[in-house]
Structures are given as C-alpha cells and as structure tokens.
Design a protein around this nucleic acid. Structure first.
Length: 278
DNA sequence: CGGCTTTGACCAGCGC
DNA sequence: GCGCTGGTCAAAGCCG
C-alpha cells in the first residue's frame, strides 16, 4: 500500500462522517420543504372547496330565479318574527376575505399589521383548533363595521390566518402599512403583504406568507421588514395584477404538484442507492 | 387618565 | 328542551 493510500484509508471515517452530515442536512431540508408543501396543499384544497361551494351557490341562485322569489319573501317575514337580543349589526360583505400571514415561529401573538388599527374584543378557544382565536374590531372610525378573526394555522403555527368580515367605512390608511405607532405595546407584528383583492375574487387570493418561503426564507424576512411605503404599494399593484389572472392560480397549483413529484423521484433515487432514511 | 388587552360570563344558533 | 359551540360583552387590570 502506498503512503497516500494509507492516509486516505486513515481519513475514511472522517470523510464518511462529513458525507453523512451533509446528507442529514439535505434530508432535514427536504422534510421542511415537505411540511411547507403540505400546508400549501391544505390551503389550495380549502380554496378549491370554497370555489365549489361558490359554484353551487350560483347554480342554486339560478334555480331560485327560475322558481321566483316566493321563498325569499317567506324568509323575510320569519326574520321579522324573531324576538332576539338586539345586537349592533351592520351590513357585511357576503364572503369573508382570508389572508395568511407568516410570523416568527417563536412569536405567539395574534397581531397582524395590515395597515388598519384594530381593537381586540375577545378571544376564544375553538373546538377544532388548539390555538385560540382572537376577535378584532376596527377602531379607526367610531362606527366602522369591519371585523377580523385571527387564528394560527393547525399545521404550521408560524402562520396566522386572518378572516375579515365587513368593510371599512373610512379611507385606507396607506401610511400605516408600516408598523404603526399605535400598535399595542411590545407586540411583534407579523410581516404582511398588503392586498387589494376584490371580494369577488375570494378564494383566489394568494398566501403571501407561503410563496417562496423555503427557497428564499431569509431574503423575504429581511426584505419585508425593510419595505417602505412605496415598495409596499408597488407590491400591492403587482400582486393584484397576478391575482386577476386566473391562469396564475393554476400555474401555482401545477408548480406545487411538480415539486411533490420531484421530491418523490429524489426519494426513490435515495432508496435505490440504499441511503439511510430517518 | 385614556386606550388597550385579558378573560369569564352571557347570548344566539344549531344539531340531536 | 338541552347541550354544545362560536361570537360578543363588559369589568378589571395594565401601560404609556
């Protein structure tokens, strides 16, 4: 055996250890990506369900039009009969807008900086969620009917799901797209990409928090924090144009599906090579 | 002191 | 009618 050969043989365990470490790191990364895709799939699936129900609703409405408005008249009479506790009810939008916001994993607050000033009026632990749901009311105008519910995603607790009800009765506060000074003391707010998604596009809104999360996590965190007003508005315009394109949603779904296929291929390859699986 | 959050109590709707 | 659940109220306490 040559001298070089002996040295190589002597260093073999170290080389193997390094390789194992590299492979472990890669495996870990793939696992994380897998989790992200799971969440995205869940979101897409829920949106698909919403679209289906919306379609069903449209079909039902068409049927109702054919039959006439008789049933609606009966319904309104029934409403008048109710002798229930008078709640301050304002006319709200037909469908709530849902927004997904990524927060720091260690941040357990339910506060999202979306440019408006919200006052928390309740918190509840719901049946199907381990994390509590917080209820907020817009406090920018005395009689603003806008409300929102904020809850953490079941599968990824770093993601906040905000459901908006009602429309604001005042102007959009562009200035406060940055974290506002009126923000509750000491609370860290979630990074937020403003949207101007029309309500009729509900179900097609994009999960800003999720898109490109794994591939560009660090960049997006830093970038979002450093966004100034102008870039936020630009982003808003850009996102709006994307959302208006129905092909974009399809392309996104295809991309997710492709990623899953690629991952499966990689896994099969690893198995063929007899690589250890955790 | 005003504005906010917290939290237990209360209420309405719904299913059984 | 009853129990469960989600949504809201309101008193108490905290903080700048």
């Amino acid at each position: 055996m040559t001298r070089e050969g002996f040295i190589q043989l002597f260093n073999l365990p170290t080389i193997m250890d390094e390789k194992v470490e590299t492979l472990r790191a890669e495996l870990q990364q793939v696992k994380q990506e897998n989790n992200t895709i799971k969440v995205m799939l869940e979101v897409l699936s829920s949106k698909c369900t919403k679209l289906e129900s919306h379609l069903q609703e449209i079909l039902n409405n068409k049927k109702a039009e054919v039959k006439g408005i008789r049933s609606n008249q009966i319904g309104s009479v029934l409403n008048l009969d109710t002798n229930k506790r008078a709640r301050l009810e304002f006319p709200t939008a037909k469908k709530p807008l849902q927004i997904f916001v990524r927060t720091h994993p260690k941040d357990d607050s339910l506060i999202i900086n979306d440019g408006y000033q919200w006052r928390k009026y309740g918190q509840k632990v719901t049946k199907d969620h381990a994390s509590p749901r917080a209820y907020f009311r817009c406090s920018m105008a005395p009689i603003c009917p806008a409300k929102k519910k904020v809850q953490r995603c079941i599968h990824d607790k770093s993601i906040l799901v905000a459901t908006y009800d009602g429309e604001h009765s005042h102007d959009v506060p562009h200035e406060s797209l940055k974290p506002s000074s009126s923000t509750p003391k000491g609370s860290s707010e979630a990074n937020y990409f403003p949207t101007s998604i029309p309500r009729d596009k509900e179900g097609m809104n994009i999960d800003f928090a999720l898109s490109g999360w794994e591939t560009n996590r660090r960049t997006s965190e830093d970038a979002m924090q450093n966004h100034d007003n102008r870039s936020n508005i630009k982003a808003e315009e850009y996102v709006s144009s994307l959302i208006k394109d129905p092909d974009f949603t399809m392309a996104l779904a295809e991309a997710v599906a492709r990623t899953i296929t690629d991952q499966k291929k990689q896994k099969d390859l690893n198995l063929n090579l007899d690589l250890p699986e955790e």
